[in-house]
């Protein structure tokens, strides 16, 4: 416009003469062919499922794109609404339809574990250069991690491992613009080993601390079964188990 260029999205300017590029800082996941994404089933139809992959639109997963041999109408027996799957993006048709498949290495239905959602713009940081960040996290926590390009990350393993990976992911999401992230995460995980007791103020803000008044109960836990302390009348608030 008027011999000048204007960005249409909020982002960081990158000058690589003769090109300029704007790296977006936020925004929904925009699917690309070959991407591996984590999706959730949100509708079951006769021959396909509709998946929410955090993209602008739902993605249909046709039954021919699955490892199962299904007859018409049997789709509901394999995947239910709310199930999570790892799928590959096959193609974006010019109607905007997102074709996905479950055939391929590492693709399939997810059982157990937890899904952590972060901004899709931060996914490269979670993977790290040549996968370094993933390796660090898997090595130091023993968790199993599947990263979807759409910002959904499936974490499996022991509850403790899942908890620690989740904290790392939160850390990465908040500190995503900084350099030396892998080292920071490594230091964080090492400093918080061994597990007990719950290490390091767990990234504060999100965790509600008990009000000062309730600390009595935390410091002197009641013996099992006794909900109210002896000798005190009913005006004591029920102990809050933190």
């Amino acid at each position: 416009m008027g011999g000048r260029l204007y960005a249409s999205v909020l982002g960081l300017l990158q000058r690589r003469p003769p090109l300029v590029r704007v790296v977006p800082l936020s925004g929904r996941y925009i699917p690309k062919a070959q991407d591996v994404v984590v999706g959730t089933v949100c509708d079951v139809q006769g021959t396909f499922w509709l998946l929410d992959i955090a993209a602008p639109r739902w993605a249909p997963l046709h039954m021919t794109g699955t490892p199962w041999k299904i007859d018409f109408g049997e789709t509901g027996q394999y995947l239910h609404v709310g199930d999570s799957v790892v799928v590959g993006v096959e193609a974006i048709e010019n109607t905007g339809r997102i074709g996905v498949t479950m055939l391929g290495e590492g693709l399939g239905k997810l059982e157990g574990g937890t899904i952590v959602t972060i901004s899709a713009a931060k996914v490269p940081r979670v993977i790290g250069r040549g996968g370094s960040m993933i390796t660090t996290m898997t090595r130091l926590t023993g968790a199993e991690i599947v990263v979807g390009q759409n910002g959904r990350i499936w974490v499996g393993g022991s509850p403790e491992a899942i908890r620690r990976v989740r904290e790392c992911l939160k850390l990465i999401e908040r500190q995503g613009q900084r350099s030396g992230l892998t080292e920071m995460v490594e230091r964080y995980l090492k400093s918080s080993q061994p597990p007990p007791p719950p290490p390091v103020e767990p990234l504060s803000t999100l965790v509600e601390r008990p009000a000062p008044g309730t600390e009595v109960f935390v410091a002197n836990p009641e013996p099992d079964g006794a909900l109210f302390p002896e000798g005190v009348d009913g005006d004591v608030p029920p102990p809050e188990d933190n």
Binding site: L171, M184, Y188
Partner: peptide, 18 residues
């Protein structure tokens, strides 16, 4: 306001010694 949004980095326990 939009610039400020991305300059802020909250205080963090792991930031010490950075």
């Amino acid at each position: 306001a939009l610039r400020d949004r991305y300059n802020v980095t909250g205080s963090d326990p792991t930031e010490a010694g950075q």
